[in-house]
Design a protein around this nucleic acid. Structure first.
Length: 501
RNA sequence: GGGCGCGUAGCUCAAUUGGCAGAGCAACUGACUCUUAAUCAGUAGGUUGAAGGUUCGAUUCCUUCCGCGCUCACCA
């Protein structure tokens, strides 16, 4: 007999004892007067004497996190909504059945209480319990109270347990929600309309990535999970939704790392009649305000460095290579504009690909402070519009911080002939074995052929932005249920079946 | 996919050169009416991730597998 079986058996017995006392082990609706954080924040200025005189009644609920039993009196901490409030239960202050119930309460159970607010001798705001309710029984033990849940695998697999045991983990996801809500608020304020476009797509596109494949049975149709919503959102701009955005999941069938999860959340937005310079200004504003809304400051600490989202630097890709080059042979601005120099410093086949390659090697991981890099070579930007002053480049920028790419934006290509040529170029790359090259999307060409207003569009990686604003080193720490390999047999159902006999 | 590392009680962690698998928390029994990592006395709890191998003897050494982490490559 293992310990876990033993604990389960004890808890199952407790459940029956609680029933025998006339309580329901899994209770129903409970109308509290206060959530625990509200109790904690409502009376901080009141002294013990004032509270004793007023005897403020409250009805509260929460999960039992600690219990200190001293014979005929006990203290316990209840947890709810990230707050912990101490309750004081003494035998002579509650009914006999309530006291017996209290003796059967385990750490991890969810209970309710009527009582009044008071201060203990040490000054801690607490609730003096006068009546107890039982709301839910735990059959499994909580993580250790002092160290909490340290095992990262368990934290990812059993996020519910992590959220109970780790206030900092809870806070990450609260901040994530604030980030998304701030972005929505700002976009709405500028007249952007939120839409939802297909995640199941017969033709995928909008990014360079390998897709997940799936199949619809009754239509007998192969489908892909989208790698980006981009081409659908631009169809909507053609249709006259001149400012649209979508916040939702993309799926890319590629590597998993601390910066990559196979499903991840992107904000994409498109603004008709704008260009990438408009979006550069807007991005800087958007990031600063989001940081402020989510963390209370435009300056946040990440990995020991203060990142200032109130001051987003800007370099062209060429400038960034010159600026961040380390060691001998530092190039001049003329060098990085010289195709021969570029091809000498990269194994890539074209000057544009070489420039991107050199940029990634020289500058990318040095872009710690929030930075916009603009003017990307046309070869690596199949959906961006060429720069008027230099057709070898596109009006595109990316946003970097902490060495990570967090955003990508450009003036959209709206010439259907040019888009057709780019797709055909991509098809050529596909035939040469590039399985990340774009498919031909003829309906998208058709949409552009009806005329799309000049438009600028941008994508921001919500998971990575959340990493930056919460100080998280791994993308798995900002995704509630990151993709993991399948867990082995858990075996709990069999144990519960045994107890049910 | 490559390299490195980790996996011991429900949780957090020990275990000397290969020599009887341990502690704290949680649990159980008892004492205790202002404690807060409550305290005190006692009890119980282990397929050391799995399977093989070497050995008189394996948590420890070797092989394979499973899971996780870090890192490189690819990607956002």
């Amino acid at each position: 007999m293992s310990l876990e079986d033993d604990l389960l058996r004890q808890r199952a017995k407790r459940t029956r004892q609680i029933e025998a006392l006339g309580f329901r082990p899994y209770g129903h609706r409970f109308d509290a007067t206060h959530a625990l954080p509200e109790v904690l924040s409502s009376y901080p200025a009141k002294t013990g004497d004032e509270l004793a005189a007023e005897k403020i009644p409250v009805k509260i609920a929460g999960r039992v996190m600690t219990v200190r039993r001293m014979g005929k009196a006990s203290f316990a901490h209840l947890q709810q909504n990230g707050g912990r409030l101490q309750v004081y239960v003494r035998q002579d202050a509650v009914a006999e059945a309530d006291w017996k119930l209290w003796e059967h309460v385990d750490i991890g159970d969810i209970i309710g209480a009527d009582g009044f607010v008071f201060r203990t001798r040490t000054g801690e705001l607490s609730v003096h319990v006068e009546k107890l309710y039982f709301l839910s029984k735990t059959l499994l033990t909580m993580p250790e109270k002092f160290h909490g849940l340290e095992d990262v695998e368990t934290r990812y697999r059993q996020r519910y347990l992590d959220l109970i045991a780790s206030p900092e983990s809870r806070q990450v996801f609260i901040t994530r929600a604030k980030i998304i809500s701030s972005l929505r608020r700002q976009l709405e304020a500028k007249g952007f309309v939120e839409v939802e476009t297909p995640m199941l797509q017969a033709i995928y596109g909008g990014a360079a990535a390998r897709p997940f494949e799936t199949h619809h049975n009754t239509l007998d149709m192969d489908l892909f999970l989208r790698i980006a919503p981009e081409l659908y959102l631009k169809r909507l701009v053609v249709g006259g939704l001149e400012r649209v955005y979508e916040i939702n999941r993309n799926f890319r069938n590629e590597g998993v790392s601390t910066h990559h999860n196979p499903e991840f959340t992107m904000l994409e937005f498109y603004q008709a009649y704008a260009d990438y310079e408009v979006l550069m200004d807007f991005s800087a504003e958007l990031l600063g305000q989001t940081a402020l809304d989510a963390t209370g400051s435009k300056v946040v600490e990440y990995d020991g460095t203060q990142l200032d989202f109130g001051n987003v630097r800007r370099y062209t890709m060429r400038e960034a290579i010159v600026e961040f080059w380390e060691g001998d042979g530092k190039p001049t601005p003329e060098n990085v504009a010289d195709p021969e120099w570029l091809l000498r410093h990269s194994h890539k086949l074209t000057a544009g690909e070489a420039l991107t390659d050199i940029f990634e090697r020289v500058a990318e991981d040095k872009l710690i402070q929030p930075t916009i890099i603009y003017k990307y070579p046309v070869e690596t930007s199949p959906l961006s519009k060429n720069s008027v002053d230099d057709p070898a480049f596109t009006d595109r920028f990316e946003i970097y911080a902490a060495g990570m790419e967090i955003g990508n934006a450009y003036t959209e290509l709206n010439d259907p002939q040019e888009q057709r040529r780019r797709f055909e170029m991509q098809l050529g790359m596909r035939e040469r074995g590039d399985d990340e090259a774009h498919q031909m999307d003829e309906d998208y060409i058709r949409a552009l052929s009806y005329g799309m207003p000049p438009t600028a569009g941008e994508g921001i990686g919500i998971d990575r932005l959340t990493m930056l604003l919460t100080g998280s080193k791994s993308i798995r720490d900002v995704i509630l249920f990151p993709l993991l390999r399948a867990e082995g047999e858990i075996g709990l159902a069999a144990k519960l079946r045994e107890l049910d006999k």
